[in-house]
Every structure is written in C-alpha cells, then in structure tokens.
Design a protein around this nucleic acid. Structure first.
Lengths: 348, 348
DNA sequence: TGCGCAATGTAAAACGTTTAAATAGGGTGA
DNA sequence: TCACCCTATTTAAACGTTTTACATTGCGCA
C-alpha cells in the first residue's frame, strides 16, 4: 500500500498538483467549487503533506534545535516547557539533544576541549538537519563564549553565560537584593550569606545584590558573615555551624541555593536551633524538595518557564531578522513559606 | 553567500555528485586517490549534507517522535534521558512534543474527548514530519488503549497503560512485594499500606504485591491497615493519623508514593512519633525531595532511565520489522535510607 | 588479438512538494 | 471586432540528495 501524495490527491480531484498546494496553503485564489472538491478528497484520504518535501522546497523547516546540557537537572524541563509553549503557538517543532554532561563518563567541567567537541557535534548535527536556530540550555558553571559556532544560524543561550552572545538570564542581583529587602522588612539587620563557589558568575551577582542591599539599608556588615560554600548540602551544613558559633551570630541567612539551605536546616536541627523562631533562612531555586523540608523553606523561585518563552521569542526574532528588541530579563519571585520570621529580639 | 551543496563539492573535486555521495556514505568503492581528493574538499568547505534532502530521497529520517504528557512531571526527564542515550548511539534524532496536560487550561483527565483531540494532533504532526516511530511518555492515570492512531507507524507507550498496545512498564507488583519482604527482613509483621486511588492501575498492582507478600510470609492481616489516599501529601498526613489511632497500630507502613510519605512524616512528627524508632516507612518513586526529608525516606527507585532505553529498543525493533522479543520489564530498586528500622518491640 | 570482467566513473531520474511562468477562457471598453 | 485584462488553472523547474543504469578503462587470459 503506497503512501498517498499530492499527485494522488490532484488526480482524484481532477486538478493539477499546484491547485492542491494552493488550496492547502491558501497562497492563491482558487475557485470555491474547485477548492471544495480538493478539500473533500484530502479529507477522504486523510492526506497530510510530507513536511520533509515541503521543507526541501520551501527552505523552511519550522524546526528549532534545543540543546540541553542535562535534561535531568531541575531547571531544564521547565525551560523546555516554555520553549514548547512558544513553539506550539507558532507551529514550530523541537529537535532535542541532551548533552548529558553530568553523567557522561570521563567528563568534567574543567575539560573544555572534550566539552567543546561534544557540544559542537550536537550543533553540527542540528544544523545539518536544517534547524532554523538553536536554544542552548545550560546549567551555569561555565562561560560558553566562543566555544560553539553555528555557521551563522542564530543561537540563544539560557541558564548559562556567554558574554558576547545572546543569552537570556533572570536577574540574579535583583533577586538577592529582593531577598535581603524582605528580611529587612521582617525586622532583620544582622544578615549573613552562604554563597556558592566564588568563581561562578551567579555567586558573584547574588553577592552583589546582597552587598548592595546591605549598603543601601545601612545594615550591619561583618566579613565573618560571608561564608563560601560549594553548592552542595554538606557545605551548607558545615557553614551554618560556623556562623552560629560566632560570638554574635546573625539572625537571618541568605543561602544561595536550596541544596545548601537543606544542609543548613539539618545543622540547625541538630544544634537545637529553632527555625524560624531563632534563625530565619531564605533559599534560592525553589527546588521541589524545599516545599517538603521541615520547616518549608522560603525561597526564590526562578522564572524558568518565562525564560524558555523569552529565549524562543528572541530566537525567532533573530531568525526572521527582526530588530533586536532588548527585553527586560524575567524576574525571580520570592515564595514565602515557613523559614522566615522576625528576629528573636523583636519578639516579646 | 550561497549555501554550498553536493554539487559545489563535486565541481571542486572534479567528480560527479554521485562520487561525493559514495564517498560520504561508503556505499561503493571509490579509487583511494579520488576519495582523498573529495574528502579534502569536503573538509575544506566544512560541507555537511542537507539531511532534509537525504531524507526525502532515502525515505529514512532517522528521527523518532517523543510525546510527553507533561515534561515537568518528575518521571519524564529521566525517561527522555534514556531515550536520548539510545538515540545518540544509533544516530537517531528526537522530535519532541510536550502535551502539557496538567497545565492546559480547561483540561482534566476525565475529559477524554479533549485529550484525544490534543494528542491526536500531536501524533499527526509528527507523522507528517516523517518520524519513523513514536514514544509516548505518560503520567499514569488513564488507559490509553485505542485513543490514538498512528497510521501504521509504530508507537510504544511508557509510564502509562495501553492494554492492547505495546507498552513498557516496570513491575509494580514485584516492587511492592520487595518492599514488604524488606520490612519483613527487618522484623516487621504488622505492616499497613497507604494506597493511591483504587481506580488507578498502579495502585491495584502495588496492592497485589502487598497482599501477595502478606500471604506468603503469613503476616498479620487487618482490613483496617489498608488506607486509600489520593496520592497527595495531605492524604498521607490524614491517613497516618488514622492508622496510629488504631488500638493496635502497625509497626511499619508502605506508602505508595513519596508525596503521601512526606505527609505521613509530618503527621508523625506532630504526634511525637519517632521515625524509624517507633514506626518504619517505605515510600515509592524516589522523588528528589525524599532524600532531604527528616528522616531521609527509604523508597523504591523507578528504573526510568532503563524504561526509556527499553522503549527505544522496542520501538526500533518494530521499525525495522524485527521479531518482537519479549523483554523482562526493568525492575525497581529499593533505596535504603533512614526511615526503616526493626520494630520497636524487637529493640531491647 | 579479442573477450569477459572488475573497478571506477557519469548522467539523469527520482523523492514530494512549491512556485514562477505560461496558458486558457472569458468578459469589457473602444 | 480587436486588444486588453482578469481569473482560474496548468506546466514544469527546482529544492539537494541518492541511486539506477549505463559508459569507460584496463587487465588477465585463452
């Protein structure tokens, strides 16, 4: 049983293939009664044009490539969801590639050459499949500038940094500033920070926001209040201990991700420090688990879905050669839960 | 600047396009020195053949479609990761569609007609893009049998049920049997269960495993030990209460997902019941958060990655018309953490 | 010398569409 | 009646490959 094509439809409807094409695409006037006839045959045979052939001729595939550094990392599915929404609305398709960086045997972030080869292969593959552009979804810890080239197909980076390229980010600095402002509004003034690794860009930005807020609100500043972790739960556990052993400990802590915050909570529990009564904690990332910890962590939700949409919007603008409209980055949003209260001293 | 094609390469290498094609695909002998020459030109111009044109002519796209009911649900990214691994190893590509069932405005699981239209559109779209087969990733609560037709392209379902179709599942019954066996090995004999909704297939299967183990190990059976929740955290909270107020409460509970287990933990904490000293809990799903709860939950890990691989393997076999080899379903694996100990009475 | 055959190469059709250009068949106005 | 235009339609080229069928060459061998 041969697959039916446009010729078969044309034959049955007693018209040329051109008419069938015009009817389907509405690219030219067709006499209503002919149109009717064609439509009926299409319906009858449940004919769907071969998108491959269409693409070849029209040189438009309506397909964009998505490269995820690791789809199992928490940020990625939400971003893809955003991308998919935009794509669906604009009749585009998504060709997905997962780099799987975290699990690739022998891969480590320092090995730029190996990364580059891997990523470049993915790009070449997508380009050879005639995607019209690429969205790259990272997991942060690396500046990707110049590592990838796409042969002048547009590429938009998100959740990672590519200094001279087009990259979509939420506003880290603003987010951490907002968190401090929130703590201040609750009455805190002795606010510590548990940062991620200091050679990472988000750490620096979030620290900027922290420092800026401290200055602006004229809060107590103590270098001993600045602890640098490694993003892992253990370091949160460790550093909370150090902080609370200070002769005059903070009443609130901004922790730069929920993983470290979870560790900090465990440390607090072991030391009999009640959160939020004796100590307030604000996390970052709004990870799924943070709503199930005890207490449920107040944390910064990342606008991942919006970033996906914005990335697609930007990409599609560049594909159609439109003016680069500079959009505001999407904002993080504080999720108020149970790990923040007023400072102890303010309670009667 | 015109995109260079096979003709340009042929011209520069002073051969016909056929030779270039033969060199690239190794489909015929080419004199080594000619081959050399062609290869050099290809290299020089960094030529990559247009996969769309290749597909049109060869009628093979090396692309499979993936339909996810909701990519933001925890199971999906891991399954996709498995699919991607297999695809990468076999030089296939993934065209992704996210149905986004949970968030679609107005969508609810009971509305089969609306679901069907939505899903069928996605399928038609993929088929028109000439995918060679489809993997469907569900989120469980529905029998999909007969709702979708693919015009005789093969389709493999996973993480959902489609009774008369080809569907890949882990062994729910075995998993829950194993969990009970584990509790027995720790000395428990009074084991309750908090089930999911009873009209759901996994609930039934997991209950089978529970009941089978109870019978086989000749454990105490009490209908009051069977509680039916709705998969949500609140119901876990509620039902743990009911269980512990029984005159003679269980010493261990099998909870059919980690969400309800989290609720149960909270209820236990409020009642001053120490886990695992006074009560053991085994969860299901190995959700990310379950490693961060207090205590960290012992739970059943689902072989999601393997299911993705197996789904692809099955699909590709069907694509190439190979014998349907019936493979064993991948198995769940108990992740031992801190929510299980021996029953209280066995402690001196 | 002539023949068959292997090795190497080329020309051109084909894949299923879109679309520019050509054509047919009427009106219309002068 | 003719020149012109408009609409509806068809013809056929093109998109960038693969692949079939055929052509050429050179070699071994009777």
């Amino acid at each position: 049983m041969k697959k039916i094509g446009i010729k078969d439809i044309a034959l049955r409807a007693n018209v040329s293939t051109a008419i069938v094409s015009y009817v389907m695409n509405g690219t030219r006037n067709v006499k209503p009664e002919t149109k009717e006839r064609v439509l009926k045959v299409i319906e009858e045979f449940n004919y769907r044009p071969n998108a491959i052939a269409q693409s070849l001729k029209s040189r438009r595939t309506n397909t964009i490539g998505v490269i995820a550094e690791d789809i199992t990392v928490f940020n990625t599915p939400e971003i893809i969801d955003g991308i998919n929404d935009y794509a669906e609305q604009h009749d585009m398709h998504i060709l997905l590639t997962n780099l799987r960086l975290q699990k690739k045997v022998g891969y480590n972030y320092a090995d730029t050459a190996s990364y580059q080869k891997h990523a470049q292969n993915a790009v070449s593959d997508l380009v050879s499949n005639q995607v019209e552009g690429i969205v790259y979804i990272g997991v942060h810890p690396r500046d990707l500038t110049g590592l990838i080239h796409t042969n002048d197909k547009p590429i938009v980076y998100t959740y990672c940094y590519a200094q001279n390229e087009c990259s979509i980010q939420y506003n880290d600095e603003q987010a951490s500033y907002d968190a401090i402002q929130y703590l201040v509004s609750k009455g805190h003034s002795r606010i510590a920070v548990i940062s991620g690794l200091m050679d990472s860009i988000p750490s620096r930005l979030r620290f900027n926001g922290y420092y800026k807020a401290l200055t602006e609100f004229q809060l107590y500043f103590d270098p001993q209040f600045i602890k640098v972790g490694d993003w892992g739960g253990e370091s949160g556990y460790q550093l909370l201990g150090e902080l609370m052993e200070l002769p005059d400990p903070p009443t609130a802590i901004l922790v730069m991700n929920d993983l470290m915050a979870a560790g900090a909570l465990r440390a607090a529990a072991e030391r009999g420090i009640s959160i939020p009564r004796e100590l307030s904690v604000v996390g970052f990332d709004n990870r799924e688990f943070s709503a199930y910890l005890n207490p449920r962590i107040t944390t910064m939700d990342l606008p991942l879905h919006d970033m996906g949409i914005l990335a697609m919007k930007t990409l599609c603008n560049r594909i159609s050669g439109k003016e680069e409209t500079i959009e505001e980055p999407p904002l993080c949003k504080l999720i108020e839960r149970d790990s923040v209260a007023g400072p102890r001293t303010s309670i009667k």
